[in-house]
Write a protein that binds this DNA or RNA. Structure first.
Lengths: 160, 160
DNA sequence: CCCGGACATCTTGACGTCAAGATATTTACG
DNA sequence: CGTAAATATCTTGACGTCAAGATGTCCGGG
């Protein structure tokens, strides 16, 4: 009997005509996502990053040497608009974690490059971040983690 | 091989020391939550509502007659701060969907009441909303929906 | 009874995001 | 070639949220 169950019970009483099966799943998924985001933010914040800025740094880091991508490449992996990405890059450039370098091949474009400072920060942060992520799901045994992952994958496939 | 798989592969290549089990689950969960929120918003928007304003109206509606709750009661169910709730109520009051009525028992407090206009709007909207929610998870057969719900419940229990 | 702490709500200022459109560059075609 | 369409990024204005603190009200011990 959790928070979502109480909501469903109220709806069943007030509107017995509604099928609330999906509401339960979506409600738990949204609450869970909010909780997890907050827990993740806490660790990133200890390193002076938001999850927004970390996402950009991590995308550059995992792309491999020379740790450079265009804003368009970054957009393709992050589910945000171009204006949001411009803003994120502006912030990271101000704090010296990335720099914009001109792209000689295409002057409409620009390359976002990890600085040394950015590289060492993301290197340290991602290590702590991954430990934290594993902690957040440790209430599930390994086989249930795998089952959850499979179900999420299947549901996600309907949208991507 | 979905979007999240590609991210995990990059990390395995660049940082084979990291255990990315949880990253996969959390990544899919976050992307899914974003997709689902956008789909849900679309239906609410057709009724002139955001998910924020709908949440408030729906909470009042499912609380049962006389469809009145204090801001504090609303806060307890919505995972937002008091300032956010004040703002939501302000918007709904401007559009005539709720009204603030004084609480004679406790003048620090106030009751937020669904207006007739608010009631009929939420009544129509929630019907469409629930149909839409069920559509969003129809890619899973019934037994897998139940399994997913159970796993989410278990994980959520660690936070609530 | 009164006053300090608890409580309920609202205010303020900052931030991240989005949609829509502006600017600059490249590409393809006539 | 020259120009229109496509592409890549940035700008602008609005919105929802949060953290921190202000304001107004209630309550319980002295």
């Amino acid at each position: 009997m959790d928070h979502v169950d109480r909501i469903l019970d109220q709806w069943r009483r007030e509107r017995p005509d509604l099928d609330v099966t999906a509401m339960g799943i979506l409600g738990r998924l949204k609450r869970l996502s909010t909780h997890l985001s907050r827990e993740v933010e806490a660790v990133l914040q200890q390193n002076g990053l938001s999850s927004s800025s970390f996402d950009v740094l991590a995308t550059l880091r995992r792309s491999g040497a020379p740790y450079r991508l265009s804003p368009g490449d970054l957009l393709a992996t992050t589910m945000v608009t171009s204006g949001t990405m411009t803003n994120r890059i502006d912030q990271l450039e101000k704090t010296g974690l990335v720099e914009r370098v001109v792209n000689p091949q295409d002057r409409r474009s620009v390359l976002i490059a990890l600085t040394e400072k950015g590289f060492s920060l993301v290197e340290k942060t991602v290590t702590e971040h991954v430990v934290n992520q594993n902690r957040l799901v440790e209430s599930l045994p390994a086989d249930e983690k795998a089952a959850l992952d499979g179900l999420l994958r299947q549901l996600l496939a309907a949208f991507e």
